[in-house]
Design a protein around this nucleic acid. Structure first.
Lengths: 167, 167
DNA sequence: AAACAAATTGACTTACTTTGACCATCTTGA
DNA sequence: TCAAGATGGTCAAAGTAAGTCAATTTGTTT
C-alpha cells in the first residue's frame, strides 16, 4: 500500500473515530509519524481531500499552525460535484450565475438571502473591473464555486432546511 | 492555543464581564500575568484590536501609565455605511475583507452565515485567477461592495439571527 | 521496453508568533 | 528644575509551521 494511501486512511479513521466532520492536524507531526517529507501531507490533501472528494481544507501557518479538514456533509458530494464541475465549470456569465442561484433557492438548497448575496457577488457590477469579459467569467466561476463550497460546508440548519432538498 | 489568542480572549472577557465598551490595562502587569514579553501585548493589540476589528486603542507612558482599549459602537446601518463609503474603497486585500466581514457578524449587522459567504467570495481561492494582485484587490473591493449593498438593501431582520423560520 | 502516471523528496518561500534590545514619554521627588 | 524611575512603543531577529514547485523515483500500461 502506498504511503499516501496509508496517510489518507489514517486521517479518515481519525475523523471516523472522533465522530467529527472536522479535524485539525499538525503537518509536521503527521510527517514525522509517517517518516516522510512534510510536503507529502500536502500531496495527500491535494489528491485525496479535494472538494471533488467531498472535503475542504484550510490552514494556518506560524506558531500554533494547523491543517483543518472538513468533510462536506450538507449535500451529497455527487450533486455538489455536478454543480461545481458541470454546471458552473471554468467559466460562467453573470446571467447564468443568477439563474443558477435562483434555482438553488427555489429548490431550497440555499436560502433566499444566500442567493441574493451570491447573485450580488457575481453580478456585472461586482466584476466591472478592468478585465476582458472572458477573464471575468473565469473569476465569476471561481467566486461562485467558492461560495457553493462555503454553503456546502456549513452544518444543515435546524428545521427549515430539511434534507430532502440538497445542494 | 496561541498565547496571542489567549490574551485576546482574556481582554474581551474582561470587557464583557464589566459591561464596558472601554477598558484600561497595565501593559507590564498583563505581560507578567502571561509570562511574556511586554511587547507581546502590543502585538496582540496591533493584530486583534485595530479599527478594522472594531476597536481603538490609546495609551499613556510614565508613572501611572496605561493602555486603553475602546470598542467602537455603531449601529448596523452606520457600520455598513462606513464600510461602503470610507473603508472598502477601490482596493482591499483578502485578509482585510475577512476581518471586516467577521466584524460585521460579531456586531450582528449580518449573520454568521452571510459573513462566511462574503469571506468565501473574496477569498484568495475565489480570485485565484490569472491577474496580478493589484487587479484582484480592485475586484475584491467591488465584490465586497456589491455584497454590502445587497445586505444594506434588504429589510432589517426582526429578531432573526435565529433563522428557525427561514423557509 | 517505452511511455505515461503517481508518489516521494527536498530546497526554497511565505506567514504568523515570540522575544529582546533599545527608544520615547510621563510622573515624581530632591 | 531636573534627574531618576516608571511606563509604554518600535523594530528587527529568531522561532515555528505551512505552502510551492520541480526533480527524481516508483509503478502501470501498452
Amino acid at each position: 500500500m502506498r504511503l499516501s494511501d496509508t496517510i489518507e486512511q489514517f486521517i479518515k479513521d481519525l475523523m471516523q473515530q472522533e465522530q467529527q466532520a472536522e479535524i485539525d492536524l499538525k503537518r509536521n507531526e503527521l510527517a514525522e509519524y509517517f517518516h516522510c517529507a512534510p510536503s507529502q501531507i500536502n500531496y495527500v490533501l491535494s489528491t485525496r481531500f479535494t472538494p471533488d472528494h467531498g472535503y475542504v481544507t484550510s490552514s494556518q501557518r506560524g506558531g500554533g499552525g494547523y491543517i483543518r479538514i472538513v468533510r462536506i456533509v450538507r449535500s451529497a458530494p455527487e450533486q455538489l460535484n455536478y454543480l461545481l464541475n458541470e454546471r458552473v465549470g471554468d467559466s460562467i456569465s453573470a446571467g447564468e450565475a443568477q439563474i443558477l442561484c435562483r434555482q438553488l433557492a427555489e429548490r431550497k438548497a440555499i436560502t433566499a438571502k444566500d442567493a441574493q448575496l451570491m447573485i450580488a457577488a457575481t453580478s456585472p457590477a461586482a466584476l466591472s473591473a478592468p478585465a476582458p469579459e472572458a477573464v471575468k467569467n473565469v473569476m465569476r466561476a471561481r467566486i461562485l464555486r467558492s461560495m457553493l463550497l462555503c454553503v456546502a460546508q456549513r452544518p444543515a440548519e435546524a428545521s427549515s432546511e430539511v434534507n430532502h432538498h440538497e445542494v
